[in-house]
Amino acid sequence: MTTETTVHVDGLTVRHRRTTALDALDLRIGRGVHGLLGPNGAGKTSLIRVLATVAPYRSGRLELLGVDPAVPAGRTSVRRRLGYLPQEFGHYPGFTVREFVAYMAWLKEVPKAAVPEAVERAMERVGLTGRADARIRTLSGGMVRRVGIAQAIVNDPELLLLDEPTAGLDPEQRVEFRALLRELGTTSTVLVSTHLVEDVATACTEVTLLDEGRVAFCGTSGELAAAGDDDAAGDSPTERGYTAALRRHRSARAASPEAAV
């Protein structure tokens, strides 16, 4: 890891009622594109929501972009530099694309003078400039997803959190999106939660694999691919690495529940 760490997570525990979503999680992420993998219910969305400063956590310590988001002043400063695409992307169907992105720029306190250019640039990066004045309700599902990405990057975030951004994108759009991710990763910290391992293989420099609220694997995407062995299920090296890492983590936990990984 050559860049400085921008996301520090120590002993983060999140509970929903009686289930534990994140169990004393430790994580260090720096600049670049970071993939977040894991089966359903592993705690990916819980982690991203905590990092987006929208969900409370039971215990642990958090440092985002050098500040502690538990302090109100720090939280506001983080939020200004944060981009977030929730899993369920809520939007206002009556707004046009440009209006919605400008609205989000206002919410993120982008300086007024910089808003017009930031809005145009965000729409251009996701390829929506041609539909800038279309109401969102007239757009297809994939385009709405791109509106979601555009609003997430409108403030040139230093920390970008994307929860399943590629769901609903067609293959061509996904290829373009991965290129965008790589470009964004050169200047900021991008955390992408996904179910699609090929996103991770091609766009992510590093990968964290979560299982039952714990880190099952953490390394580069090359290391994940290398972790696979021939009897692991999967059609690509990364898929085989994914199942193998998961299997190894589970058997280690079963052997000694206290010392996973």
């Binding site: 929501r49 987006a52 400063t53 929208v54 506001t76 400063s77 939020r79 200004r80 944060l82 977030y84 929730p86 369920e88 992307f89 809520g90 939007h91 206002y92 169907p93 989000m104 206002w106 919410l107 993120k108 306190e109 609003q151």
Partner: peptide, 22 residues
């Protein structure tokens, strides 16, 4: 009730603008 209907709660909660202004 719009934010509830549209499910924009998370998105808005992550924004820097103060809740009152929003």
């Amino acid at each position: 009730g719009r934010e509830g209907r549209r499910g924009t709660g998370d998105l808005l909660a992550s924004a820097a603008r103060s809740p009152l202004r929003r």
